[in-house]
Nucleic acid binder design. Structure first.
Lengths: 262, 262
DNA sequence: TCATTACTTGACGTTTTGGTCAGGTTTTGC
DNA sequence: GCAAAACCTGACCAAAACGTCAAGTAATGA
């Protein structure tokens, strides 16, 4: 939103903001890793040897832990209240760090948000891995839907955060990130098209198929309120998710698989 | 958020806020109607006679017009920026009315938002009207999906506004409104169940069927960004919507209709 | 025509919020 | 053990945002 006021002082390095070699912001920050660090488990006890140079690791430990704390608090708040609805003071409180400390690790609110977007996109490809040309479409689609469903459910907060951003038009999506999404989708669409050519699937548009699956699975995470109201419940149970999964699988498989007798 | 400071003066009616007999806020405000009023077409020219008493109508004209202006500007902003992201000053500017005038018609930002929710819910039942026990399921489902799709597309702004609210957990949904949604859905689920009993449809869970349809159709409106990126386009065309419709219809009909030969 | 009611609006007050800063403490490398 | 770097934080600031007010002008009804 607003950049450091550089005109006020000619000394660009007036305040030595701690840059890391890897990049301005900890884009590679991994929550799980950081939480390990938080508990003092620094790559120890797995195979006896400390994998990474302990020097560098311990150097980055505090930063990793605190950035993770901030991001964890932030994604939760952003997903529930949106970008503008979330106050830095809230993030600070939820993360247990004083506000000024939050600003020590992230230049602006935008920076926190952008970091989360980056992290989220990493999960974009994961579920699509099931769409593998070597597999049979029925099994592959089943697994894909399952993976998508599980992801949305387990990462409710992330899912909503992402939905929130998309609903706003994806302002924080860089051109590069969009290109990446396109590339992955294109690859997988080609797999579907291959299955269609092989007569294993009905001639559907792969992109729209993906979108329908995406929409349906996402729905139960993002619009859990609507789903719960529709089912006359206070909140969705594991069973509801299971039934939702069955329903989607039925529609998709019946809808786009060639009947076995064809 | 904050109520009028009544403690400062003992005179409760210090400022005569213009209450209407019908209710505190113009819940029954209809944009189309108000825009008619805006153009001076006050129930004239349809059948020659002025339907409603002209006195009362002209009395409410200015109010109707300005409330409509405010609501129109507000729904657009809310849908793009969310509740907290939208500034009253922006609504004021977009509606062409000075800020103080906005506050003359609506007590708070919340009041504007709540009014929009109310209006939106009225559209909830509309498309579901196609699910009629007297019809054949194939035709009915086809029309329902079409109606949903068209609605999301034509009322992009409203659709996103609603999605935004649901994503946030439906804070502004009253118990009564939830009950209404449940009632309508239950009625229509019963119709589906009837078709299943008659052997016209495969035994699917009607609620999950509705949710899948809802999710898929909504997707192209709410997450148009994702859809466009997926399709490698800048924006969705009429043709894209048509293809999306075909895809959903194919999946749904193949997925839950009994094959004709059964 | 005149009183009453409805509408309009520029200017103002208060609180909130993103962001800054200076000076502190801890950690690290040697 | 010590200098340098990294980390921490209470107090502060300017801008922005919500909401208020008082003093208007226009519409209405008798």
């Amino acid at each position: 939103m607003k950049f450091r006021n550089l005109t006020e002082t000619s000394d660009f390095f007036y305040k030595p903001f701690p840059l890391r070699k890897e990049g301005f912001i900890a884009l590679d920050c991994d929550t799980a890793e950081a939480e390990k660090a938080d508990r003092g488990e620094i790559n120890a006890g797995d195979n006896g040897t400390t994998m990474v140079a302990p020097k560098k690791n311990s150097e980055a430990r505090i930063r990793a832990r605190n950035e993770a704390k901030i991001l964890k608090a932030a994604v939760d708040l952003f997903s529930r209240k949106g970008f503008d609805g979330t106050r830095i003071a809230e993030i600070s409180q939820a993360s247990g760090l004083p506000k000024a400390n939050v600003y020590y690790y992230f230049e602006t609110k935008e920076a926190i948000y952008a970091t989360l977007i980056e992290r989220l996109l990493a999960g974009w490809d994961e579920a699509l891995g099931h769409i593998d040309p070597a597999r049979e479409p029925e099994e592959a689609l089943r697994d894909y839907i399952r993976a998508k469903m599980d992801y949305s459910r387990k990462h409710l907060v992330d899912s909503r955060f992402f939905a929130n951003e998309m609903l706003r038009g994806g302002r924080f999506l860089s051109r590069k990130q969009k290109k990446h999404m396109q590339k992955i989708t294109k690859e997988k669409a080609a797999v579907i098209e291959g299955w269609i050519r092989d007569g294993k699937m009905a001639p559907v548009d792969p992109n729209h198929l993906f979108m329908t699956i995406w929409a349906s699975t996402q729905f139960y995470a993002d619009f859990a309120t609507v789903a719960a109201v529709t089912l006359c419940k206070n909140r969705l149970t594991a069973r509801d998710y299971e039934e939702a999964y069955d329903n989607i699988v039925t529609l998709v498989l019946n809808g786009c698989l060639k009947p076995a007798t064809a």
